[in-house]
């Protein structure tokens, strides 16, 4: 009885099931591995800059006050606040797992179209992912330290999402379009959000020194690129490894 109802709705074919598990497994491995490394890099290189900025955001330090402020205040060290930093590690791993699932799914589509997916081609996938998710939106909505003036967060999220979507389509067209028309469309898609412009604040009110803001943006972009290149290589590697494993098991 139960068996009949089960078969009445079309069961997933073994090929589909194998594809499910290959995408999910390689995405999870790549995302967790790249996310863990990224979290440690961020905690070491980005977090101190953010904590430094928070001293100005909270008013403990005042820029352009009566006297010059030391550029080297005492900052809490690595994992000085284990809950805060631990949550950062978990959320970085989750975020990069989200990226990895999207990337590996697209890799599976590209492979069906005959493109080689491995750790080496994964490096390029990583660069494309970095441009899509980090660099394209960040070019006009620069990575910001806490305390800076910014437009309404909802508006910025809409612009961010639209920019990531157009950049993603553009990177796909550049990689796989293969003709002038698709390159032209890609260029327009990459330019459009920045020509239209990101939501900007009405006035400037940031209390954080520009040196800290600039270092934060540079570090965020730099660690982001390293993270994405790692993610791409890991995704390509695990995609290959999982494919071989399921072939051997079959």
């Amino acid at each position: 009885m139960t068996r009949r109802t089960m078969y009445a709705t079309q069961p997933a074919s073994p090929a589909t099931k194998a594809m499910f598990s290959r995408i999910l497994t390689s995405g999870l491995f790549a995302g967790a591995a790249a996310g863990l490394i990224t979290a440690l890099l961020q905690l070491y290189f980005v977090q101190p800059v953010l904590l430094h900025a928070e001293l100005y955001e909270g008013g403990e330090l005042v820029h352009f006050g009566a006297e010059a402020v030391s550029a080297h205040p005492d900052l809490p060290g690595l994992f000085a606040d284990p809950v805060r930093d631990g949550l950062s590690v978990i959320f970085t791993m989750l975020t990069y797992t989200g990226y990895a699932l999207v990337m590996v799914a697209l890799m599976s589509v590209a492979e069906r179209q005959g493109h080689a997916i491995n750790a080496r081609s994964g490096l390029l996938w990583g660069v494309a992912g970095y441009v899509t998710f980090h660099f394209a939106p960040g070019l006009s909505l620069a990575p910001e330290v806490p305390g800076v003036a910014a437009a309404d967060v909802g508006l910025r999220q809409i612009w961010w999402t639209a920019t990531v979507a157009t950049a993603g389509v553009a990177m796909w067209l550049i990689a796989f379009g293969g003709n002038m028309v698709s390159y032209l469309i890609a260029a327009l898609l990459l330019l459009a959000p920045h020509v239209i412009g990101a939501p900007e604040p009405e006035s400037f009110s940031g209390p954080v020194p520009t040196e800290i803001g600039a270092l934060f943006a540079a570090r965020a972009f730099g660690i982001g690129m390293a993270a994405w290149v790692l993610l791409g290589a890991f995704a390509g590697h695990f995609w290959q490894a999982e494919g071989k494993r399921s072939l051997a098991a079959a």
Partner: peptide, 13 residues
């Protein structure tokens, strides 16, 4: 919980 990650990863926070 995600505050520091959002800033470091370039999400509007």
């Amino acid at each position: 919980a995600a505050h520091d990650v959002r800033h470091a990863t370039g999400f509007p926070c």
